[in-house]
Nucleic acid binder design. Sequence first.
DNA 1: ATGGCATGAGAAAACGTTTTCAATCGATAG
DNA 2: CTATCGATTGAAAACGTTTTCTCATGCCAT
Lengths: 328, 328
Amino acid sequence: MTTSIKDVALLAGVSVATVSRALGNGPVSPALRAKVEAAVAQCGYRPNLSARRLRSQHTRTVGLIVSDICNPFFTAVGRAVEDVAYRAGMRVILCNTDENPDKEAMYLRLMQEERVSGVIFAATRATADALDTAELGFPVVMIDRAGAAARCDAVLLDNRLAAAQLVEHLLERGYRRIGGLFGNTSSTGAERHAGFAEALQRAGLPVAARFVAPSAAAAQAELAAWLPEETAPEALVASNGLLLLGAAKAVRAAGVAVPQRLALAGFDNDSWMELAEPGMTVIEQPVEEIGRVAMEMLLERLRQPERPPRKVVLAGRLVARGSSLARA
Amino acid sequence: MTTSIKDVALLAGVSVATVSRALGNGPVSPALRAKVEAAVAQCGYRPNLSARRLRSQHTRTVGLIVSDICNPFFTAVGRAVEDVAYRAGMRVILCNTDENPDKEAMYLRLMQEERVSGVIFAATRATADALDTAELGFPVVMIDRAGAAARCDAVLLDNRLAAAQLVEHLLERGYRRIGGLFGNTSSTGAERHAGFAEALQRAGLPVAARFVAPSAAAAQAELAAWLPEETAPEALVASNGLLLLGAAKAVRAAGVAVPQRLALAGFDNDSWMELAEPGMTVIEQPVEEIGRVAMEMLLERLRQPERPPRKVVLAGRLVARGSSLARA
DNA sequence: ATGGCATGAGAAAACGTTTTCAATCGATAG
DNA sequence: CTATCGATTGAAAACGTTTTCTCATGCCAT
């Protein structure tokens, strides 16, 4: 039995309503306000957020739905989201979907039951395309991946451009047989593949792309199988940090020289990219900015529900390192 | 205006109480249960969790308070906690304290206002020692670091032993001037330092330890300053993954050969440890198990509030790699 | 046939707040 | 001197559930 606002009122000799007003910022005389604060301090009162949320009908809670918080990209994004959210007096509920549409649906339902103020969502391709954000009952900001048709706010990387940039970098450095490893569940993977393919076609080169499950292990297995083949590439583009990690492991296990026998390049400037010899060439995403902007857009949307949806497209930054050194 | 249980009752032609019972698992006849389910489906009813929590007086929510979810150790632990929690029908609120005691106090207060069922807490040394878990109002499971006096559940690594193990490994490989880099806020850093110092003293060797803020940048700066000194070690132990990352960066920037001029060893088998040439020797923590066991202990505690507190001490596993190769 | 007794259902209370509504009071304007 | 107004305050309703109580019904044992 915890102490409630009633106990405070009794102790301070005022009404329940006055306590509520003194704690929020209602109009209350300095004298009573002082009495209330004294009583609160004396009995160690803590407001019950469930009751407050029920009565006031807004939860000051946002959901953050990502595929896997263990992916450093989402960790960093999530951290930025939380910082902005807590600073705005909102709480964050984190959900990991493992790129599983069933889990996505389950968590979306949970968000409805929580009556969240809004959701920041990195959806799989399937869900992003099918999602009807209007009937959800709360605003959604898409991150990383956006549904083609989704009429809602989003903050994204210019994936096509970034992938093309990577290919052109490799072409410049003298590589020709360029392969690609892409995630098979996200629209991000698809877009990066599109930019990859376009750039190669512009150069009149064949595109050799493989799609894998979005995990380091899958990428490692795929590349391990690919390396001994005749079609094995001279340079490889990996569609995100996890896949690049897997690729690097496969390369190391096979004892393949980087970049002499195989150049590597990918996405996400994770902490190890600099450290793995000879340094990984990557497109760095502005991870902190993505999370911050997403949360800010959500807050903006809550203030102005009728504002037309907006998509913020951020640019990646090419960080060239030893793994794509110019060909001898 | 969302649909409430009242609307469902009206639509199904039964009382509110019956709807509640049909949705929970109260005793209700099959006929009415079917009618209720039909009505729920028809009007798309979603229970309001705030109301449910207020009335039923349990929130089915746990808090997870860590220093920084960007640290791969906490990411992995957090992921395991969430998996177990969601499977048990509980939600997780994540809080990042940045090892700041003020933030810790703030989040602890927030947890009280949320009326959480319990908290899993990686506290700083200061907080862990001062914390009075009895007056918090909810059970706490400490992870990673435990207060000396804290009379509550905990799941920890045998830090002393692990650090000593690391030192003995280096001694075996022929290193003598062994330095250490330890975090200056956590009790973990202190314990690992203790094990480190003991092992060196047993061997009759001097202990050269430096304490730094718990971040890769701080470790990098410290080691960069240390390397040129006369007292620079032949081998370095870093107290966690972040510090080891910083150390590796400093070593790389200074062009120091590993392990020829400086051997490296540390904690946490993060994904890059294998990849950073020549491979990092580390004590691997059972991260997934730590998170899982912590959450399971919390559930257990909720079932049996009066059970005496229990500490689970898990062992680390030494993974020897090239960074600690036997001395020539 | 009658008195428990288990079962299923509804009415209403309760959870701890915020918010609306009405009331009191002092002061200022007419 | 009185009527009106603004500022505070308290009483009570409301938020959407779960849970306690009460009651009706049918069944079994006496």
